[in-house]
Amino acid sequence: MAKAEATFHVFRGEAADAESGVEASGEYQEYKVPVEEGMVVLDAMHYIQGEDAPDLAVRWNCKAAKCGSCSAEINGKPRLLCKQRMDALPLDEPIVVSPLKTFPLVKDLVTDVSWNYKMNAAIPPFQPKEEDTDKWEVFENDVVRTQEFRKCIECFLCQDVCHVLRNHDRKDAFAGPRFMVRLASLDMHPMDARNDRVKYTKEEAGIGLCNITKCCTEVCPEDIKITDNAIIPMKERVVDEFYDPVMKVLRGIGLAHKK
């Protein structure tokens, strides 16, 4: 039996580089790849590297959806290349593979995601209420929420798909879903001593710019319920502190905790 063949249209191009005189370029190249059982798109990219284009740039590490390196867009959808099975794609038309569009292109499928690392470094680190962890009593129920958020593999697909970053380019004021999740994991941590996380979430991370379009949740390869479990609860906490007049009164007369 002849093996099925898939046609790929893979973005090839690079950013301008003044020093080496490289000019910005970009177009889709067509490649044919034989399809094998149980194959994923990353396998196809490796096939192309091995047979047709050894210089095809693509990030990948674990090939098991645990490291979040091989983020790209397949037929326009933000996906991990290693997690997109070929048998889930229609093979009668070209499979379009392109880099993340929210971040600056480096080369081919590789983009410059360093902005995310800057956002992460700006978030104040975990600060324990009690230094001696032998004194901690923390139960499973208290960490279920934080544990869900800490499953994040930092693939930045949520950052890529978020329209606040992608279409409105508000990287100046909005940290993006990934860091809403991170802030939620810190604020909901039963042993975190800081009480300014909600303020940070509103004023530095700009949670008000999220309008619950929920694309981040749709693309999360770890199935973290980003919107329902992280962003909305954090929005509600922001409301407690900044918008809810009743809470303000309650705090004023000492019936609610002061943050």
Partner: peptide, 20 residues
């Protein structure tokens, strides 16, 4: 087979590579 064209403006209405 048809060529895939690079999207110049990802903010244009309906601009996408999604084919679903």
């Amino acid at each position: 087979m048809a060529k895939t064209v690079v999207i110049q403006d990802i903010n244009a209405t309906g601009a996408t590579e999604r084919n679903d």
